[in-house]
Amino acid sequence: MNKTFDRYGSIIFAIIGVFFIVESTKISTSAYGSQVGPNIFPMGLGILLVLLSLRLFYETLRYTEAPKKETGTYQTYQTKRFVLILLCTILYAILLESLGYVISTFLFLLACFNLIEKGKWWPPVIVAAAFSGGVYFVYVDLLQGTLPGFPTWLGF
């Protein structure tokens, strides 16, 4: 259990709850005769969420500080690798439509393969090309699906 995370988590969930309560009062009530409009359900849930968050906050006050477990399975956190791959994924999402599926996927996979492990340069190139080209061929050409094609400035 992580006291800090739980505490901030409970505060964030409480804020979300308050947000839903406040915002649900602004929903226009329904036009037809029913007394239960579209605002009741989210408002009730918002109140529940706030109450549960308070309960969690109260629980965090009573956590007995568990002794730090450093024995046995010591984990090496690879934060740098994670952040880089996360950035790659975000960049991939941004560029998918403008670069087209095949090119952006190829670049994304190639980058990630090499971020996770360094090795010979050519196997990742082959796997990335096979994945991006294969998916595009099967989905777009065989199954007639839609994926962003090649950018127009490439000329084909």
Partner: peptide
């Protein structure tokens, strides 16, 4: 090395 990025790739696809 290949598995993890491929899962991201499949998810995005």
């Amino acid at each position: 090395r290949y598995l993890l990025p491929s899962i991201i790739g499949i998810s995005v696809f």
